[in-house]
Structure formats: structure tokens, C-alpha cells
């Protein structure tokens, strides 16, 4: 029987790496294997006929082995690329990583330069896409100060970039207590002064949570920021198209200066 073997795994780096480990050691042959990760809302994609489904239990030891061999047999650069792909919202990223690694273990570190190869090219583009969004969010993220002094922020990124941006903020604001909430994935990262930051799940987060925190506090600096934002534009050069191109609408729901205020008092 030459049925396609589909390895189903968790949608996480560890999950995908476990699946790759098990698929590789299964001996079915690369052509007969497909890796399928859960989509972000925990559903598997369409079930394919005439194929065997193998449920992969995430195994950290196996995942570690895979990441170790990527680092030692291919390169650190390739490992980072693969990780970013695993954090992306691409549909069949698990299988893409599998194909990338097949080539990578074959040719070694120079695989990242095989840009005209379709698999490598896809990995390259996804990598750029995830990096790009992380870079955007680093700029567009807004903290608002709560009454207890904690800085809170909500983001809605397309890719799971929370782990990519938090180190940046931990380095930048070492003396602050802050929370960054990923409103799309119900996860958040927490930072306390003098400690390493942590990732946590936040179940049952209201979609309007952000609006509530924004409304509850009367932070004068938020007001000052809006004043600055409105004044810095040169009226003769108003150009909403360019603004939209540089700062897509989807980011604006989480940005202080774009959240409409009912009671703005203008002097």
C-alpha cells in the first residue's frame, strides 16, 4: 500500500519538530510523507482520502534533537529561518519546513542561498514576511499605563511574533513591568524588572479588552501624544494613500493615536 502518511502535529515549533523527527525515522520515504500542523484555531485542515493519519504527540526531547541537528548540520541561520517560518501563519508550514530540511541536510549551510529553488524561496519569503511584521509591531505597539504602573499593550499580528518582539522590549525597558497581549492567540508575555520575561496563556480574553483599558485611564501623555501626532503633519502635503501604504489600517486598532476619543478637549 502506498498510502500517503500524514503526520498531524501541534501548531508550534516543538510540535512541528516532533513530527519531523517521527516522520524522518518512520522510513516511509519522503515522497510518501506529509506533515500537517493544526491551524491556529485548533482545527485540522481538510481530511484527505486514501491516506493514513498519524497523530504526533509533541515530544520535547525529539524536538531538541531536530533543532540540534539543524544547528550543527546546516547552520544557525537556517535554524532561525525555520523557527520564523514555524511562527508564521502559512498554511502548510510544517511540510515546507520538512522539505527545506531534506534539502538542507543534503547540501548543508549553503541551502539558504538556493533562492531559485521553490522550497527555499518560499522559506526565504515567509522569513522576510514574519520578520517584517515583527519589525512593524516593534514600532506600532503602544503601551498604556495602568493605575498600578504596569504597562499594558494589545497587538493583533497575523503571525505569532510575540516571542520575536518581547526580547526587544525587555532589553529596552528593563526597569518596567509590562504585559504584551496577543489578542489573536490568547497568549501574552510578561516582564518584571530583573527577571527573564515569560510567556503565558490568557484564556477568555475579551476582544474589547483593549478598548476597556484605553478608556479606563486618563493618561495625560496619551493626550499629549495625540496632540503631537496631529501637529506634526504638514497640511500642504496631506497624503492618506502614502500613510495607508506605510501604516496599514489593520495595525491602527491598537494604536493610541488612531483610537477615536469621544471627549477630546481641545484648548
Amino acid at each position: 500500500m502506498n498510502n500517503l502518511k500524514i503526520f498531524q502535529c501541534e501548531n508550534s515549533i516543538d510540535g512541528i519538530f516532533s513530527a519531523i523527527y517521527q516522520a524522518w525515522s518512520s522510513g516511509y520515504g519522503h515522497a510518501n510523507i506529509r506533515i500537517e500542523e493544526q491551524s491556529e484555531n485548533d482545527n485540522y485542515t481538510n481530511i484527505t482520502l486514501f491516506s493514513d493519519y498519524i497523530i504526533v504527540k509533541t515530544d520535547f526531547e525529539q524536538a531538541m534533537k531536530v533543532s540540534q541537528s539543524i544547528k550543527s548540520k546546516i547552520s544557525l541561520e537556517a535554524y532561525e529561518m525555520v523557527c520564523r517560518v514555524a511562527l508564521s501563519n502559512y498554511q502548510s508550514k510544517g511540510d515546507l519546513i520538512y522539505r527545506f530540511l531534506i534539502l538542507g541536510f543534503h547540501v548543508g549551510s549553503k541551502v539558504v542561498g538556493y533562492l531559485s529553488n521553490e522550497v527555499v524561496n518560499r522559506v526565504f519569503k515567509l522569513n522576510r514576511y514574519v520578520n517584517g511584521e515583527a519589525h512593524h509591531i516593534m514600532g506600532f505597539l503602544r503601551f498604556s499605563e495602568q493605575e498600578n504602573g504596569i504597562l499594558t499593550s494589545v497587538i493583533h499580528p497575523k503571525n505569532n511574533i510575540l516571542t520575536l518582539i518581547t526580547p526587544h522590549f525587555a532589553d529596552r525597558l528593563p526597569m518596567e513591568r509590562f504585559v504584551i497581549i496577543d489578542g489573536n492567540r490568547n497568549i501574552c508575555s510578561l516582564h518584571l524588572p530583573g527577571r527573564p520575561w515569560v510567556l503565558a496563556e490568557v484564556p477568555n480574553i475579551k476582544s474589547t479588552y483593549h478598548e476597556t483599558i484605553m478608556d479606563d485611564n486618563n493618561d495625560e501623555y496619551e493626550e499629549l501624544w495625540r496632540v503631537f501626532f496631529d501637529n506634526i503633519a504638514i497640511k500642504e502635503r496631506i497624503n492618506p494613500g502614502l500613510q495607508r501604504n506605510n501604516l496599514p489600517i489593520r495595525f491602527r486598532r491598537d494604536m493610541t493615536e488612531f483610537i477615536p476619543r469621544e471627549n477630546i478637549q481641545i484648548l
Partner: peptide
């Protein structure tokens, strides 16, 4: 407080798109 990235970061874009 603070660090700096060589690539620079844009934090917002005003109405004139700058």
C-alpha cells in the same frame, strides 16, 4: 531605559504619510 537599533524603527506615520 532605552536601546537603539541600527535599522531604525518607524513608530507611526502622520497624515502626510511621513
Amino acid at each position: 531605559m532605552g536601546n537603539s537599533l541600527a535599522c531604525g524603527i518607524c513608530h507611526s506615520f502622520s497624515e502626510d504619510g511621513r
